[in-house]
């Protein structure tokens, strides 16, 4: 029982970061209706920015986090303007978007690899190794901070989208981008904004991932977990992404402890495929038939 509790708590801690990534990824999905495979690269660069801000600029943690968020947001914005906007204007098939996204991802990853090297960069200790106990299980301070901050960030994002005028414009555009453009919503601006918001989240998740697992060129593969989380929750649904991330984190943690840590990733990907087959719209998704 004690062990089960501990496993779940550990799972939630990882799940919080998955949730953060999944929200950013789902946000983009909901408006452009395609999977931005370049998102992992943005997160990875966010992680590097946080790392260099702390080790080269020696700024305080909060400033490093802010810098990384801004940097990732700028990158995410550029990602859309360079790799997708002209495809969007041409109404290119989604295959083209995916190829462009894949190209961006390969480009970013190997750019970092070629210029900064393949080494693993450990973040300086911010929270120490100390942990606190919670309901009889222990949780690292970093994990606790990560999950709380992640949930706050997601909450603010959700509030922004649900309750501000800009947020309503985003939702209108994601509901039907062609109709809302007629209604005078500047679609390009809204899409740019969505990429900026997703970039901000990418910065946060990059820093937390870096603190937990270090920063390195291929860390973007962890973002595969973002896709899985988003699919669990239902692609395009923000609450779904959060719940999906937490569920995936806990499930993985349970598999690692009770089955085999080697099989954890095989489990996740198999789970993903099974889920796509039996429940393509996930827990909260709107899997609409394509309009014909």
């Amino acid at each position: 029982m004690q062990m089960l509790m501990q496993t779940i708590v550990t799972g939630l801690a990882v799940g919080g970061i998955y949730a953060l990534m999944a929200v950013g990824y789902s946000l983009i999905f909901s408006i452009l209706n395609f999977s931005n495979f370049a998102y992992g690269g943005i997160i990875m660069l966010g992680s590097y920015m946080g790392f260099y801000a702390l080790t080269l600029l020696h700024v305080p943690f909060a400033a490093a986090l802010a810098l990384s968020m801004l940097g990732a947001a700028a990158l995410s914005f550029l990602n859309e303007r360079i790799a997708y906007s002209s495809l969007r204007k041409r109404h290119a098939p989604s295959l083209y978007f995916m190829i462009s996204a894949m190209g961006t991802s390969i480009f970013l990853e190997n750019m970092v690899y070629a210029t900064l090297g393949s080494s693993y960069n450990a973040y300086p200790e911010i929270f120490g190794q100390s942990s606190i106990s919670l309901f009889g299980s222990t949780i690292g301070k970093l994990d606790l901070f990560a999950i709380i901050f992640s949930l706050i960030a997601i909450y603010i994002m959700n509030y922004f989208i649900q309750h501000t005028r800009t947020g309503i414009a985003i939702r209108a555009a994601s509901y039907d981008s062609e109709v809302s453009q007629i209604n005078g919503v500047n679609l390009s601006a809204v899409i740019g904004l969505v990429f900026i918001l997703a970039g901000l989240l990418a910065g946060v998740s990059g820093v937390f991932l870096g603190m937990k697992y270090m920063a390195y060129p291929t860390m973007g593969w962890i973002t595969n977990k973002a896709y899985i989380s988003a699919v669990i929750g239902g692609l395009g649904s923000l609450p779904g992404a959060v719940v999906g991330g937490l569920i995936l984190g806990v499930l993985e943690s349970l598999v690692s402890v009770y089955v085999s840590s080697l099989l954890r990733d095989v489990f996740s990907f198999t789970f993903l495929i099974v889920l796509l087959l039996v429940m393509p719209s996930g827990l909260f998704g709107k899997y609409l038939e394509e309009k014909v």
Binding site: F34, S35, N224, L276, P280, E290
Partner: peptide
């Protein structure tokens, strides 16, 4: 299974991604 389910094209691509990763982990083990 994935093609029979007529997944949207990007869902199918995500499924192939999952397959590739799972296969690599299997080869390692």
């Amino acid at each position: 299974p994935t093609l029979r389910a007529k997944l949207r094209s990007d869902y199918f691509t995500i499924a192939t991604l999952g397959f590739g990763e799972a296969m690599r982990v299997l080869l390692e083990n």
